[in-house]
Design a protein around this nucleic acid. Structure first.
Lengths: 340, 340
DNA sequence: GCTGGCACTCGGTCCGCGCGAGTGCCAGGC
DNA sequence: GCCTGGCACTCGCGCGGACCGAGTGCCAGC
């Protein structure tokens, strides 16, 4: 009804106002700045209801209202149209990401870009190995009993491991082994590599078997932590902005949690491609993030995300803008990775 | 003389006290806590001299004294014995760095370790490519006109670049090319690679020449920014510690400068192996660092540093401890890199 | 040349007060 | 029935003054 509708508009106005001014917002200010068509007194009544329902709260008596996590959640869920980026912004994105020479460069630029667009802390995950495919597997002899295995994926990741081989190995054997392994693995998703290993060992010539087994084992090891998950973080300077205002006490725990990576990776694990996930304040399980919001999305062209990226900031953030920015950057990153 | 000697002891006591308490230190407190053998009044006289000479200063009248940059410099230059790390600390270092699987892992652990030992922001530079030697050069055909060049160095760095080749190329040709390039470059320092390129092109079979030229050019491109210099930063949370106390205004500019990397890299460019460099406050050219000190050293077993590492913190830091920690970690990193 | 004493300075903290923003409630009007 | 204007009330914030104490510089005496 018209009733609820107005209340929604009031809530929206409160969120917008608070996000931009960082001051608890009162009924008079609302009436003055937003064309709600009613008097402050009416707005007060609505605000009382909104407060009772838990969408807003007063920091103290005789102060204005501030959205609660629930209020932000409601607001975010009703964000009808994602505001598209301006032409200038799109231009900036292209210009920023263009000319990246490799994966590291692409992700480094992305994180800087995202931090700059949103003025928040940006986080970009490397493409997961499990969902990448083998482009090439290289073996470099280090000594007769040690090989350097270098895995190159189609997403541009490179992992290297030293393999201790059980028997002394000559150059010819290594070449044989390399050919065999590449024939078997090139083009295969790493997540499915473990299925192939058994058969591959059985099917190899006897003198290669222990070698195939050793290298395959090392290959599979790259799929577990810590190498599997890597993260680039940027824009932490943005935290120092209104830190005192936005984060009670200090934001040290937040920085620590970000450096831990684990926390962020867990959040990122849930993201799907093209659907932006927003988790707000107390919705975050980790304690250090209960005053923060996390906007994230997967990137990658297929149906399954190769990795995730997002921004972390105070719950008092420009959700519409950040969602748009995160989505746009993810799309570009997806394209760039598909291209190379 | 005994005179100057006592004054030095007073300065040292002031530095130590201020570092540990973060309070401007007065004559009475000094006399009480440090066994200087004289009364507060005498200390006051010494302090007046030290202030006149520019080693200490008062934040305001009726406050205690605080060391100036010059005071810290003097103190650092007279740090007679570097206090060795405790056995427990050495143990911790070994334990922390042990089991690293690759370069990324080694440097990531080092930066965390250093941040933890010093409670400052830690910075670790990747080994410079120019001073690394080629371990292997791999070429993976992407299409008939594009090759993926993967450079693997003896320091564990891996760089990849797409090479657009001028003519369509078949698998056999690529194999030839790979053999040729590896024969030429394997074991060579990258810094000296440019000398070889000319001769190599001339000496190659005519059908390979444009390919050799293209790949060599790309190889040399890896030696310039931005790929040449990479940095890992950790422990930024430590900045949030006493930030308000240690950094006037906010420490935002400092975080920004760290993220820029360029500033730190320039500082790092000057470090030599085994000689710890300390630059204090205003000695740093970059404005954001004028309230900070930087303790750095090169790592690497040879006579020339492969890269640098260090810590950044307020001028009010435990120089002796940080120097010891930085040096110890650098030594371990050097060993680890030499091993693999 | 060191020491104890003394007067002085001045920043930090606490307290009390007035201001103003903002609220809740109520009676009246569309 | 819902909105509106009016009104009394609450309470955080900012300001100014007073107090306190740490610390200093100076000086006379040992």
């Amino acid at each position: 009804m018209a009733h609820d509708d107005r209340r929604l508009r009031v809530l929206r106005a409160i969120v917008q106002d608070y996000v931009s001014t960082n001051d608890p917002v009162g009924s008079k200010a609302l009436a003055a700045r937003y064309d709600l068509g009613v008097s402050p007194a009416t707005i007060r009544n609505d605000m009382a209801v909104l407060e009772e329902e838990g969408y807003i709260t007063q920091p103290h008596t005789s102060a204005g209202r501030v959205p609660t996590d629930k209020g932000y959640r409601f607001f975010v869920d009703r964000l009808s149209a994602i505001k598209p980026l301006s032409a200038a912004e799109r231009k900036a994105i292209e210009k920023f990401l263009d000319g990246a020479v490799d994966l590291h460069d692409v992700l480094g630029r992305s994180v800087r870009l995202l931090a700059q667009l949103t003025r928040q802390v940006a986080v970009v995950q490397y493409p997961t190995l499990a969902r990448s495919a083998v482009r090439h597997l290289e073996l470099v002899p280090l000594s007769t009993s040690r090989l350097l295995m270098v895995l190159i994926t189609d997403t541009g990741r490179v992992e290297q491991r030293v393999v201790e081989v059980p028997v002394d190995t000559e150059a010819d054997t290594v070449a044989e082994l390399r050919t065999l392994l590449n024939a078997a693995f090139t083009g295969a998703k790493l997540g499915e590599a473990s299925d192939k290993v058994g058969d591959l060992v059985d099917a190899s010539a006897p003198h290669l078997r222990p070698l195939v087994a050793a290298v395959s084992a090392t290959l599979l090891e790259t799929l577990v932590e810590p190498s599997e998950d890597r993260l680039v973080i940027g824009g932490t300077a943005n935290l120092a902005q209104g830190s005192a205002l936005d984060f009670p006490g200090t934001f040290r725990p937040l920085l620590e949690a970000l450096e831990e990576q684990v926390v962020v990776l867990r959040l990122m694990a849930e993201v799907g491609p093209s659907t932006v996930t927003v988790s707000i304040g107390e919705e975050n399980e980790h304690e250090a993030l209960t005053a923060a919001s996390f906007v994230s999305v997967g990137y990658g062209s297929g149906d399954q995300a190769l990795g995730g990226l997002g921004v972390v900031g105070p719950t008092r953030m420009d959700y519409a803008g950040n969602i748009a920015a995160v989505r746009a950057v993810a799309r570009y990153v997806g394209h760039l990775l598909a291209e190379s």
